[in-house]
């Protein structure tokens, strides 16, 4: 039972990663592919944040100058915090490309097959 609790976060990471991966592989709709990528990305966020957690710890913000408490690691939080904002910017870039593809080809499904017609 404790083994399941200890590793459950990593298993959820694997599941989410694969759900996103499956969406990218099988969906032909470009918006859906981007949603798959976003899930994939969130899975990586979860992996990093899980690694920083420590038993009996609290958020790495020191209250009343009490440095003796147990704190979770701030480093993965820093990395992921910036990654989330970068993630939305790159997602917006992807969506902008999808909008332009729609304007140029008239559809965002199955672009591979339609490219030969134009």
């Amino acid at each position: 039972m404790s083994q399941i609790l200890n590793l459950s976060h990593y298993w959820v990471f694997v599941l989410l990663l694969m759900i996103g991966f499956y969406a990218v592989l099988t969906r032909t709709n470009l918006v859906k592919k981007l949603l798959g990528l976003a899930i994939f990305q969130s899975a990586v966020f979860l992996l990093f944040i899980s690694m920083g957690k420590i038993d009996g710890g609290t958020a790495p913000i020191i209250l009343n100058d009490d440095w003796s408490q147990t704190f979770s690691s701030p480093l993965p939080q820093v990395l992921i915090l910036t990654a989330i904002v970068v993630g939305i910017s790159t997602l917006a870039l992807g969506l902008a490309i999808v909008v332009r593809i729609k304007e140029a080809y008239g559809r965002i499904d199955d672009i591979d097959a339609s490219s030969s017609e134009n």
């Binding site: 710890g57 993965p76 989330i84 939305i88």
Partner: peptide, 23 residues
């Protein structure tokens, strides 16, 4: 729950708010 208050704040503002509007 994983002690990442800063990350949760970012995810709530960006992921649940702005990204939905952009999509």
């Amino acid at each position: 729950l994983l002690d990442a208050a800063d990350v949760a704040l970012t995810e709530a503002a960006v992921g649940a708010g702005i990204s939905t509007v952009l999509m």
